[in-house]
Design a protein around this nucleic acid. Sequence first.
RNA 1: GCGGGUGUGGUGAAAUUGGUAGACACGCUAGACUUAGGAUCUAGUGCCGCGAGGCAUGGGGGUUCGAGUCCCUCCACCCGCACCA
Length: 933
Amino acid sequence: MKYNFNDIERKWKAYWNENKTYQIADTSDKPKFYVLDMFPYPSGAGLHVGHPLGYIATDIYARYKQMQGHHVLHPMGFDAFGLPAEQYAIETGQHPAVTTEKNIARYKEQLNNIGFNYDWDRAIQTSDPNYYKWTQWIFTKLFHSWYNPASKKAEPISTLIALLEREGNASIAKDGMDIFSAQDWAAYDEKTRRDVLMQYRLAYLDNAEVWWCEALNTVLANDEVVNGVSERGGHPVEKRKMSQWFLRITDYADRLIEGLDSLDWSEAMKEMQRNWIGRSEGAAVRFKVQESEREIEVFTTRPDTIFGVDFMVLAPELDYVSEIASQDQKEEVEKYIQYVKSRSERERMAEKKISGCFTGAYAIHPFSGKAIPIWISEYVLAGYGTGAIMAVPAGDDRDFAFAQHFNIPITNIFGDRFTGEAAYSDKQGTIENSDFISGMSITQAAQAVIAALKDKNIGTSRVNYRLRDAGFSRQRYWGEPFPIVYKNDIPYTIDEDALELNSADRELPVLLPHVDSYGPGPEGQGPLANIESFVHIQNSKGETLRRETNTMPGYAGSSWYFLRYMSPKEDKAFVNEEACKYWQQVDLYVGGTEHAVGHLLYARFWTKVLFDLGYLSFDEPFKKLLNQGMIQGSSRFVYRIAGTTNQFVSAGLRHQYETHPLHVDVSLVDGLVLDTARFKQWRADYAQAQFILEDGKYICGAETEKMSKSKYNVVNPDDIVREYGSDTFRMYEMFLGPIEMSKPWDTKGIEGVHRFLKKLWRLFYDEQSGQYLVVDEAPTAEELRALHKSIKKISEDMERFSFNTSVAQFMILTNELTELNCHKKAILTDMIKLICPFAPHIAEELWQQMGHEGSVIKADYPKFEEKYIVESEKNYPVAINGKHRTNISFPLTAEAADIEPVVLANEVVQKWLDGKAHKKIIFVKGRMINVIV
RNA sequence: GCGGGUGUGGUGAAAUUGGUAGACACGCUAGACUUAGGAUCUAGUGCCGCGAGGCAUGGGGGUUCGAGUCCCUCCACCCGCACCA
């Protein structure tokens, strides 16, 4: 009887399905464990072998935890809304709802093929109205909340209104906001009041600069723009001022940084988030402009260098630049602004050349009264700080380069440490040549300057962030509609009384209407703006109101999906209270690093808001985060001789010719040897291909690259499963190496793991005779030792997510039992339990063959017992002066008898030394005895 | 430039607290059984050397009886951010 994995796997997949083996209750008396994968976006390309890596790891860990006695939630779902789905729909001429359904069905099929323990009844899909109803609901909560800086948390907007009614906005006014009193507030009309509130709401409408992508016809969030082009498709982007929804994530900047300390995430990941938030402490200083009412505020992290200010630089985009420019410089300034505008974001990033223009205006130094020339330059960014800097060329590399380029004299405030050759940017030593702070250390000087600024009321200490508020509007179709209706151009959520909507229209969800075309609406609006029946809505008074026509971005649905899994069918709330209290945080979250600053930051932000508002009892969503590495493709190349159309030379001989390497489909290559006959059939162009062989073979070149269709290196898990079975596939993915590391896929290596499963099978069956070998006899000490050694090792490995070494240990155990010719039921029963999380199909089959009741999946994990692995005698390596010489044996009863190991070791070694002189005997950590002579 | 990470055989990699480096596999080399093998099994396989032995964890230095592991320094590669004031 052979190991017929196809039959076995089909049988057990059907069994699990019928018996709903993986169905799981919302709550339980058992301790909980929540394991989560980053849910996939179902693309048209389907899964390749790299995708399931993390899913296999979580599946194994979830099964392991469940066998350890936990109630485990390990759900799966689909991130179905978003830009790529719509682009794909446009390309293929189908409705995104249709393509999304199709892709999801395909994904489910592929995932089921691998044998995961998902309870598909709990699956969620962000584009499902029953789901996005609650995404819209959370949006309304964000809209009706504000961040109270006093309590440092989100509160209902009603507490803000109460505050404004009581005392006006003096205590909470934001930068550039007019101060008003309680009386003023009382006198304001509805529109003015709502405008004020809008400046506090966590979801707010603002006319602000955003990234606009012409090709995609929509705005993008900062994290969706990478290296000056759109993340999706790599299209150019530009800054544009538009009326847009934003989420006020910047209010949470500090809490998002502080929260990281409590999380078990990799340092790299935390660092990425910290950098993205980009907190920096310094001072804000206001400079007066000569012969003008204008004041320019700058942000600096080095207030101690204030006496080294030789010029100021403004971002060219600032609107007051032309206002302050002197008459004779106006033309130059305009020319420079035009030049900057003409440069795309990409060009700016690619070539960082020094450019700038003097405005003709001067600022007045706040302490020395010195006139400071004001320049504009593109190296100062409008979006960071105040868009204006005080330039200290003696202490800053960029300022130094700028001063050199434009021949601006440099003031030395660092004594000998500033050579005049380069800026002195080290933060060491004292400040010199600086009036009242001369001779002070940097920190002293900074404090003294800030105190002086406060005294003169021209500045203060300031914390600045790189993080911007998150753009939340997309001018696209395939996303959640906003639950927003405008009345007199004031936005309201649909449940607000002021709209006087009919009761049916006040209910969530606001359904996404069906459209036939995804063309843009008028004036940069989305496709929804073209649908008359959607845009206009009649209220109970017969007034015609206007709906918001933008949709929410892709990250809206993924910012809270982990909560929905807890009670996916709940229809009274976004999450069932009981279930949420039970499941709490995600204990283990597995996914790639690409979501470091997008999804993971937004999800943390939403969780904190929901926590503040009292809907959750935890304020961090993901306790432990594990970043799986990428499985790369191993590409193969053939070398076409230059100037020919179909002459190919084998890799070893290619240097004798001038060649062009061409990707060749990996399925046509065995290792490095090309199947030349199939290559000729691969494409019509190659039908007449001629080969220059070496040793009668055509050897291909190889390179590790990202797995992608265009590189012909994609391996489909379905093919692997068909050929080797999903148990082999699962184990091999784990065996490949540590889960966090990126590594290339190598189909050849899978044989080793497959051989192991066949070997395991042979512990149960003689393949030739078909005889069942398992016997019900008492195991020997040696067999028990082999088993328990493995239980110990594998359990320890599981706890530290070292799946590759676990698989190795299975192989060792199988080899040992084969060598011992052990077919004892007691041993094999525990062994099968150990293997079950990794290879559930074969485990179920063998479990049944042994005559056990029920499913091995529901069995208890084997308990490790120390007594079985204590050896009667143990070999200890002995070293003289650290040099290993020999092994000596002595009884291990020491541990049982509570004798100090050192004493025992001394005794044994003394005997072994036979009276030879020695200085010291060291017994190290129970592993080695070292004799110093 | 800043931040994070990684360097171990031909390859993927083990070595959890410093204690016999290279487990477990792939590949390769022999051999067995076979009409055949891309099936299965057995043996070998870090490097140099006939050998005893010597050398080996990116390079150099240090701490230690003992270092892949700890410290310093240099180098290479990968990832993230990047004119961030």
